[in-house]
Write a protein that binds this DNA or RNA. Structure first.
Lengths: 221, 221
DNA sequence: GCATAATTAAAACATTCGTTTTATATACTC
DNA sequence: GAGTATATAAAACGAATGTTTTAATTATGC
């Protein structure tokens, strides 16, 4: 389905995804989206009822597409080595956040999600319950399996946040990372490599947190 | 110096810091800043030459104040145990990003920095060279000292990004973290605790990266 | 103490943007 | 094939916003 034969509604959704992602809600204008989608302004307010609802639809679409195409297990069964399941989890996050695939040139879905974390929109609460919370629970389950004990949420949650934080940061700061050291910036080609670096780092982190939980040090200022 | 005796220029800078931080550049309006600072609109365009330049001044002020009050060493000498220097580095980041201290109720400096990482402003290039790059170099130095070997930038940079990413993420996503599990969300009281969790996690991560560098596994799919 | 510069105040301007309205075209139903 | 619903197009509206202008006020230097 080419650019022109694609139904208007879809074209709008595509363009809106790119523009909302790269410029943010406030900076993205209906006019620019309409121009990019080669669609009249009124068509946007016809199919969606306004800017806000369009944004909600984009958000839903981004999460739905991302989690459909790159499920957090990447197809691995529950019986797989939990360390490999963690690797799949992290890789899936990298793909979702940074891969170009499946979103037709959409270069900004990772940034769109980062924006939501900064300034959650009204539409985000649904996303939170339907995607993010289960996603977090899955990760916590993997960590427990890796540790082979359950140290309780007070230890597990920071672990999970540390892992997710690394992944999000690469998407958030990709622009700045590129100017600081271009060779380490995430591209389509080194995603696996970066993801695996985060994976190894996290395996070490998890081990250390477990160790500290089992044998809390007496004397360490 | 009370609210009213403070010079106009400073009052503007304070209010602008809060409002830019919490709402972002585009969403923050000159009128709201003027109202909050109890200052006429024209005074803003008189002292600063416009919205953009005001923003630049705020950014400079945030970084200057942050790094002055919380230097990355927290006073520790070069001869200190590098693991403790890492702890200081991470704590300083948490204080800078999330502490209320020293910025008169400024609740959003961490978010302001996260916004810059997402959409760097023209004023950011200076900040990058004068604050962020040296900051990164310091961190890399600490990591080398902890590892006691230098595995080269291809291994060091991801380590540094993983550490910084964790810190930034807590600031970026504090709102969402709070709704997911309120007890782990960063507050003024548990900053040390969270920072130390990131510290331990990172120590484990560094160890693991080093280990993998020294003895790369032959057979691991 | 006055003249000049620095600062603050109020109003007006020009632009941008989301939305609405009105008109036209296309598709579908009976 | 007429009539109705659906979809697109063009223009206009109204609100918000950054900036400028013009006037008034305050501080400063001699």
């Amino acid at each position: 389905m080419s650019e022109q034969t694609m139904p208007t509604k879809e074209r709008i959704l595509r363009s809106a995804g790119v523009i909302f992602g790269t410029k943010g809600f406030k900076d993205a204008t209906i006019r620019k989206i309409a121009e990019d989608a080669e669609v009249n302004i009124a068509a946007i307010n016809y199919h969606f009822h306004g800017k806000e609802e369009l944004y909600g639809a984009v958000l839903e679409d981004v999460f739905h597409t991302g989690f459909s195409r790159f499920p957090s297990t990447l197809g691995l069964g529950e019986d797989t080595d939990p360390e490999l399941r963690l690797r799949a989890f992290i890789r899936a996050m990298f793909y979702r956040l940074q891969s170009r695939e499946g979103w037709g040139g959409m270069a900004g879905q990772g940034r769109l999600i980062a924006r939501e974390l900064l300034d959650p929109s009204p539409a985000f609460e649904n996303i939170l319950n339907r995607y993010i919370k289960p996603h977090k629970d899955l990760l916590v389950g993997i960590i427990v399996d890796i540790m082979r004990i359950n140290p309780g949420p007070a230890k597990l949650m920071p672990c999970a946040l540390s892992i997710i934080g690394q992944c999000i940061y690469y998407a958030l700061a990709s622009t700045v990372i590129r100017t600081i050291s271009a060779d380490i910036a995430p591209t389509e080609d080194n995603l696996d490599q970066l993801a695996d670096s985060v994976w190894l780092f996290s395996l070490g982190g998890i081990a250390r947190i477990k160790e500290e939980f089992l044998a809390p040090p007496k004397a360490k200022s």
